[in-house]
């Protein structure tokens, strides 16, 4: 968003903006996604993101269902494709604030190619990953972030791959991007990191980790 538009927003700063839809979130009780939702909404408010000037592109998965809960322009895209779709939006209209929200499966698995390419190009989009180390919407198979050796329904002998480390990966790809992994329960860090992400001019990724309450294995 241009500075001029930001200025306009500031005039309405005291007006309470309701970023939620009327849909009650459908995640499991105790899911880390509630924390992520609440903190994203806080960040949108704090940074005066106007509902009509914000486009959030959601991936497929538990976190992707957030598409129904936040009231901005939104695209609930295909699995793995939240990043290129968001890049398309931003390139077509650079005045829009564009976020891509996905899970570890979509961003580090199906869409890893897009993650690497968009970080290389430093496209100015903000990526938020809800990383619960599993494919949970499909009832708990291994994801690219699952710790090595974990037994899941699709890997009864334990996973054989090293888990993706987003910080090391993206820093290797392009040292100038903002990338940070953190625990969802560390609320002070979550708040400050979201703040940093929202202030980032180029590409930024926040990897927010928690264990799946329904299918997760304690580490």
């Amino acid at each position: 968003m241009s500075e001029g538009q930001r200025g306009l927003t500031k005039m309405n700063k005291n007006k309470i903006v309701n970023y939620t839809t009327t849909i009650v979130p459908t995640w499991c009780p105790g899911c880390g996604n509630y924390l992520i939702l609440a903190n994203i909404i806080n960040a949108l408010k704090q940074h005066n993101y106007q509902k009509h000037n914000t486009v959030i592109v959601y991936d497929i998965g538990c976190i992707g269902n957030m598409a129904d809960f936040i009231d901005t322009y939104g695209i609930h895209s295909l699995h793995g494709r939240c990043i290129p779709t968001a890049v398309g939006v931003k390139l077509a209209n650079p005045n829009l604030d564009v976020l891509a929200i996905g899970g570890d499966g979509g961003v580090y698995g199906e869409g890893l190619n897009h993650l690497v390419a968009s970080a290389r190009s430093n496209y100015p989009i903000k990526v938020i990953v809800s990383n619960n180390f599993l494919y949970s919407l499909t009832t708990g198979q291994a994801s690219p972030a699952t710790p090595k050796g974990t037994i899941t329904k699709s890997t009864p002998g334990g996973t054989i791959g090293e888990p993706v480390n987003p910080e090391r990966l993206l820093k290797a790809v392009n040292p100038s991007v903002f990338v940070k992994s953190l625990k969802a329960s560390d609320i002070p860090t979550l708040k400050t990191s979201l703040d940093t992400l929202f202030k980032t001019k180029g590409f930024g990724l926040l990897d927010i980790e928690f264990n799946c309450v329904s299918f997760g294995k304690s580490k």
């Binding site: 895209s77 494709r81 829009l96």
Partner: peptide, 15 residues
């Protein structure tokens, strides 16, 4: 895949 996904995003945004 990215080419097509970007184009959908761009079209959504008005291009």
């Amino acid at each position: 895949i990215s080419a097509a996904s970007m184009s959908v995003g761009a079209s959504f945004a008005g291009a």
